[in-house]
Simulated assay, not measured.
Amino acid sequence: MSAQARRATVAELSSSDGCVVLRVSGELDHTAEQTFLRALGAFVENGHRHLILDVTALTFCDSRGLGCLLAVRWLLRRRERLVLLAGAGRRVTELLALTGSSDLLPVHKTVGQALAVLPAEHRPPWPPVPDRPTAPVDGAN
């Protein structure tokens, strides 16, 4: 597998004025941190109050990747907004537990469960509209 194929990508799955659901896939490490932070920062700057990160396809996350997730959480919390993780696998869940980050980055089993935490007026349609293609976010792949 090439390094390009393993690199973290971010794809928008569904959005509303108040929230965007993003699929994070690949490897979130030092090689992806700047692109990842720019991509998520763009969603925040475009006015999305909350970010739901579907991490079911995240195959690797090291301390630098965790730092990225915590940086996004810090930014959103300062604005009284949320970032929620959905579908974290065993490795990501263990990383959060071992670093004491589980309380800072709550993990929900599914995107639907994460969305249920938000006020109804901020929730985007879920599951996504079938005819809407999911495309990588510019600069995130």
Score class of each variant (00 low, 15 high):
63 S>W: 01
70 L>S: 10
136 P>M: 04
69 L>D: 10
67 G>V: 13
44 V>P: 08
67 G>T: 10
36 F>R: 01
74 W>F: 12
108 H>T: 13
119 P>V: 05
110 T>Q: 13
50 H>R: 00
71 A>K: 05
97 A>P: 13
71 A>Q: 11
22 L>F: 04
94 E>I: 15
49 R>P: 00
34 Q>C: 03
54 D>L: 01
134 T>A: 12
134 T>G: 07
15 S>M: 04
70 L>R: 04
130 P>Q: 03
112 G>V: 04
47 G>M: 02
118 L>D: 09
13 L>Q: 09
109 K>R: 12
60 F>G: 05
9 T>E: 07
117 V>F: 08
65 G>L: 02
62 D>N: 02
42 A>E: 10
31 T>A: 13
55 V>W: 02
74 W>S: 13
113 Q>L: 15
101 S>N: 07
139 G>S: 06
130 P>R: 03
68 C>F: 09
21 V>M: 04
119 P>F: 04
57 A>Q: 12
20 V>K: 02
74 W>L: 13
97 A>R: 14
47 G>V: 03
117 V>T: 10
101 S>A: 15
129 V>R: 00
116 A>W: 07
83 V>I: 10
18 G>R: 02
134 T>F: 04
80 E>R: 14
32 A>C: 09
12 E>P: 00
21 V>Y: 02
70 L>T: 11
48 H>A: 11
20 V>G: 05
65 G>Q: 01
13 L>V: 11
92 V>I: 15
36 F>Q: 00
103 D>E: 11
26 G>T: 04
86 A>E: 04
104 L>V: 09
90 R>S: 15
3 A>E: 12
94 E>V: 15
131 D>Y: 05
129 V>A: 11
40 L>P: 01
56 T>V: 12
23 R>L: 13
127 P>C: 09
135 A>S: 10
28 L>W: 01
79 R>C: 03
66 L>D: 04
11 A>S: 14
137 V>Q: 05
37 L>V: 05
27 E>F: 03
98 L>C: 12
122 H>C: 15
76 L>C: 10
45 E>D: 15
83 V>H: 06
10 V>T: 08
88 A>Y: 08
112 G>Q: 10
2 S>C: 08
56 T>N: 07
93 T>V: 15
93 T>G: 10
6 R>S: 08
125 P>Q: 06
34 Q>P: 03
32 A>R: 08
126 W>L: 08
76 L>T: 07
113 Q>N: 13
60 F>S: 05
17 D>Q: 10
44 V>A: 09
56 T>K: 03
25 S>I: 01
130 P>N: 06
8 A>R: 02
80 E>Q: 14
72 V>R: 10
60 F>E: 00
34 Q>A: 12
9 T>H: 06
108 H>K: 09
85 L>S: 09
30 H>D: 10
2 S>P: 03
87 G>E: 04
11 A>W: 00
4 Q>V: 05
1 M>E: 07
131 D>P: 05
123 R>D: 07
98 L>R: 11
100 G>T: 05
136 P>N: 07
34 Q>K: 06
107 V>E: 05
93 T>A: 12
91 R>E: 14
75 L>G: 11
5 A>E: 14
67 G>R: 06
82 L>F: 12
92 V>F: 06
46 N>D: 14
7 R>W: 01
41 G>Y: 02
119 P>R: 06
16 S>V: 02
10 V>P: 05
86 A>D: 10
111 V>I: 11
6 R>K: 11
17 D>P: 07
117 V>Y: 06
107 V>K: 00
108 H>V: 15
57 A>W: 01
